[in-house]
């Protein structure tokens, strides 16, 4: 009987050295997505006005190497226009989503910690918000505020906090009923101490991921409101307005006017989705070691 010498498992194969571990993959995705989104937001300052001035000789060109997104009916470069619009939409979306996350987390914390009638009222408000189609609610609020940029920001901020409030409330209730918090109470710790040492470490990651996963919704809804004409004014070319303008030129066959800005919007939304999911994987102790 011969002993089979152990061989392959000890030496790292070339393939293994090339592939990243799950954690490295997660970090790479987070880095690339952040870079991409930051690039879009900062692009307004980097490229400046190039491509935005009408050059009538270059009207209605289909996508080429010079103009990857083609040019519009005034000869403006669609790539720069889309980047400008996307940058604006991202900033509006980020502002609205951040306000929304703030409302959501405060109300969620209040409902979870104070309980009683506060909890009942907040839960009821959340239920009422869920009983209307989101877009109808957005239109109603944007209209009531008077439209424009303020209208969009207020409408998006006031309608996106509900699910985050639910998540935070559930999290607080769960932590509150756990053994170690009960024990802390018995040991005479003040509620503030418990909030600082037991609650905050649980809530912060939830809040962070919740905030980032709010962005795509906020941006999509901002674009939708601008698209139907209730959002940003037509003089500020947000991505929704660029798409709405392209509607008028569709029947003439200039497909890139509608397709390309939409692709950019889709990519930005996807980047936020990936960012949020990978960040959750990283922050959640159950998956972060995988």
């Amino acid at each position: 009987m011969t002993l089979i010498p152990p061989q392959a498992p000890l030496r790292r194969s070339r393939l293994q050295r090339l592939t990243l571990s799950r954690r490295q993959q997660t970090l790479w995705v987070i880095g690339l997505c952040s870079l991409f989104l930051l690039g879009i937001i900062l692009s307004t300052w980097i490229i400046g006005d190039t491509g935005l001035n009408p050059i009538l000789a270059q009207r209605n060109q289909s996508p080429s190497l010079d103009h990857p997104f083609g040019t519009d009916w005034l000869g403006r470069d669609m790539l720069s226009r889309s980047l400008h619009g996307m940058s604006l939409s991202l900033r509006v979306g980020l502002l609205a989503a951040t306000i929304s996350a703030f409302i959501g987390s405060s109300l969620g914390l209040a409902a979870g910690t104070l309980g009683g009638w506060v909890d009942a009222v907040i839960t009821w408000i959340v239920d009422v918000f869920f009983s209307l189609p989101h877009l109808v609610l957005l239109i109603l609020i944007a209209f009531a505020v008077g439209g424009g940029t303020t209208g969009v920001v207020v409408a998006v901020a006031l309608t996106h906090w509900t699910s985050l409030a639910r998540v935070i409330r559930a999290e607080v209730l769960q932590v509150n009923s756990s053994d170690y918090v009960q024990l802390s109470h018995r040991l005479g710790r003040s509620p503030l101490w418990i909030a600082r040492h037991h609650m905050i470490p649980h809530i912060i990651p939830q809040l962070l991921v919740g905030l980032i996963l709010l962005f795509p919704h906020a941006i999509l809804h901002e674009a939708a409101l601008s698209f139907i004409g209730i959002g940003l004014s037509p003089h500020i070319p947000a991505i929704g307005i660029i798409l709405a303008e392209s509607m008028r030129h569709l029947s003439t066959g200039y497909w890139w006017l509608g397709v390309m800005p939409g692709v950019l919007l889709l990519l930005a939304v996807k980047a936020f989705d990936w960012l949020g999911e990978n960040l959750r994987d990283l922050l959640d102790p159950k998956t972060s070691q995988g």
């Binding site: 999509l220 569709l250 029947s251 939409g262």
Partner: peptide, 18 residues
């Protein structure tokens, strides 16, 4: 994660225009 109105636009371009 695609905007609804954009999907509608795409279908319009493909089926109605082209």
């Amino acid at each position: 994660s695609s905007p609804t109105f954009w999907v509608a636009l795409l279908l319009l371009i493909v089926f109605s225009v082209s």
